[in-house]
Simulated scan of single mutants.
Amino acid sequence: MVVKPDWLRVKAPQWERVGNVKDILRDLGLNTVCEEASCPNIGECFNAGTATFLIMGPACTRACPYCDIDFEKKPQALDPTEPSRLAEAVRRMKLNHVVITSVNRDDLADGGASQFVRCIEETRAVSPHTTIEVLIPDLCGNWEALEIILRSQPEVLNHNTETVPRLYRRTRPQGNYDRTLELLKRCREFAPWVYTKSGIMAGLGETDAEIRQVMQDLRGVDCDILTIGQYLQPSQKHLQVNDFVTPEQFAAWQAFGEEIGFLQVVSSPLTRSSYHAEQVRELMKLYPRQRV
């Protein structure tokens, strides 16, 4: 059995608060990546009254061996009531910032872009002051679909890099490193007012030099925000952890990221792509951008 180091231990959540969030999610029939992907921060986030909503799922059309989201189930037709139910959850939870992500839906012509748009529109209708972050798949390189999402003007567009190029074939067999960078580049060109964001997992066998090169590549496409966290094996059938990266190494990556120009770098063992995502609201005050 792999023994986790002390720095990966999390505090037990206050289950009264967790239960309240879960009740809302169950009542409205919504999925969260917090639950579906076995996030280690679920207690902290649910205690804080926040969640990352997972739309168009929970079944995924890709089989990434690091991810705990189900790929064996058959994807279902999009539910036209999902956007309004998500918006109602945002209202009930009184969220200042919401993260909306999805499974990969390669079976859909637009990769699910239209469902993202409906979720954004419904959320804005009931909670106009809530800032919206979308964590999107690569849409199979359908740039028209990307523009459809951007026209709905989310404040943050997040697309995870996940790992270094050398490990893509093993870790993201249906992904493409260059396509990930191209998505973020096109986002900046089409919607310069949006805050772009990406995330990397550590502990899969990458080197420090490779992580730093990915960080430089992301800055090369003017990515604003970066998250770096420790990969944790969800089950025995998933990719094994190669090594547990020390907090000191995560701190060194954060310092390097700030040095090369990221507006924000969140780097720690327990960091995930939407961990403390609401902090972007403070970033928007420091670096305001005008929508067009």
Rank of each mutant, 00 (worst) to 15 (best):
Val98Arg: 00
Lys74His: 13
Ser84Gln: 12
Asp110Ile: 05
Val103Tyr: 01
Ala109Glu: 15
Lys74Trp: 07
Asp106Arg: 02
Lys74Tyr: 09
Gln76Tyr: 08
Val90Lys: 00
Leu95Thr: 04
Asp107Gly: 14
Ala87Ile: 08
Lys94Cys: 13
Leu78Asn: 02
Pro83Ser: 11
Pro83Leu: 09
Ala109Asn: 14
Thr101Ser: 13
Ala87Leu: 09
Asp79Glu: 14
Ala77Ser: 14
Leu108Ser: 03
Ser102Gln: 06
Arg85Lys: 13
Thr101Lys: 02
Glu72Ser: 15
Leu86Ile: 12
Leu86Trp: 00
Ala77Leu: 14
Ala113Thr: 11
Lys74Val: 15
Val98Ser: 02
Ala87Ser: 11
Arg91Leu: 12
Pro83Cys: 10
Leu108His: 03
Lys73Glu: 13
Phe71Arg: 10
Ala89Phe: 00
Ala77Thr: 14
Val98Trp: 02
Asp79His: 10
Ile100His: 01
Lys94His: 13
Ser84Lys: 07
Ser84Val: 12
Gln76Pro: 04
Asn104Tyr: 03
Lys73Ile: 07
Glu88Phe: 02
Ile100Leu: 12
Arg92Asn: 06
Ala77His: 12
Ala113Arg: 01
Ala87Lys: 01
Leu78Tyr: 07
Arg85Leu: 09
Asp70Arg: 08
Pro83Ile: 11
Pro80Phe: 11
Leu108Met: 11
Asp70Leu: 11
Lys94Ala: 15
Asp106Gly: 12
Leu108Thr: 09
Lys94Pro: 03
Arg105Asp: 06
Val103Trp: 00
Pro80Cys: 13
Arg92Gln: 09
Gly112Trp: 01
Val98Glu: 02
Ala89Arg: 00
Thr81Arg: 10
Pro83Arg: 03
Ala87Val: 09
Ala89Cys: 09
Gly111Val: 04
Val103Leu: 05
Gly111Asp: 03
Thr101Asn: 07
Glu72Tyr: 11
Ile100Glu: 01
Leu78Asp: 05
Lys94Trp: 04
Arg91Trp: 10
Ala113Trp: 00
Arg85Asn: 07
Pro75Met: 10
Asp110Leu: 03
Ala109Pro: 07
Ile100Trp: 01
Ser84Cys: 11
Glu72Thr: 15
Phe71Asp: 13
Arg92Gly: 05
Asn96Phe: 07
Leu78Gln: 05
Met93Pro: 04
Gln76Glu: 15
Arg85Thr: 11
Gly111Ile: 02
Ser84Ile: 10
Arg91Glu: 08
Asp110Gly: 07
Ile100Ser: 01
Gly112Asn: 03
Val99Lys: 00
Gly111Phe: 01
Lys74Gln: 14
Pro75Val: 14
Gly112Leu: 04
Glu82Tyr: 07
Asp110Ala: 06
